[in-house]
């Protein structure tokens, strides 16, 4: 033993040294580092879970969005259809009112025209009668004594003509 350099004092001092070193390193190095590793592991697991949850939420939101979009599209469709229908109705209304107006105007114009024509005809008749009387007077060379009777006669004749025609 002595020749190999082993001595009790050195051996014991080395044992004590090693045990002390182990205790110190355990306090200074292993425990803090292992604790830190555990903490980080925990944190990573936590953040993985969070990320998973977030992605699930995002997926949900995506679905929600799609649903809302679908609803909005349907609504827009409906509104458009409604608007089209309303517009058509309004157009129909406008058209029918215009038609009615036109009809009215036409009728009025027609009656006006008829009235005008009646007046014109009466006027013409009167003039024709006057001319006829005048012509007759010229032809007979004398004045018809009974002018009023004469006029009546012509009117009767014209009425007859009108009725005959």
């Amino acid at each position: 033993m002595d020749e190999l350099g082993i001595s009790g004092g050195h051996l014991i001092s080395q044992i004590i040294n090693f045990v002390l070193l182990m205790v110190i390193l355990r306090l200074v190095l292993y425990e803090p580092v292992l604790k830190m590793l555990d903490q980080r592991k925990e944190r990573i697991a936590q953040s993985m879970k969070d990320a998973e949850r977030a992605s699930a939420a995002a997926q949900e939101a995506e679905q929600e969005k799609a649903k809302i979009l679908e609803g909005a599209r349907r609504e827009a469709q409906e509104i458009r259809a409604q608007a089209t229908r309303d517009a058509e109705k309004a157009a129909q209304e406008v058209r029918s009112r215009a038609e009615a107006d036109a009809q009215e105007i036409r009728i009025k114009a027609q009656s006006d025209a008829e009235k005008q024509a009646g007046i014109a005809l009466a006027d013409a008749n009167k003039q024709i009668a006057d001319l006829a009387i005048l012509a007759t007077e010229k032809v007979l060379g004398r004045e018809l004594s009974n002018k009023s009777e004469q006029e009546r006669f012509v009117a009767e004749f014209l009425a007859q003509q009108n009725g005959g025609a």
Binding site: I6, H10, L11, Q14, I15
Partner: peptide, 12 residues
């Protein structure tokens, strides 16, 4: 490289 050290480790 000292037997005291290696045997101390071995003993512990």
């Amino acid at each position: 490289a000292d037997l005291n050290v290696t045997f101390a480790l071995a003993l512990v």
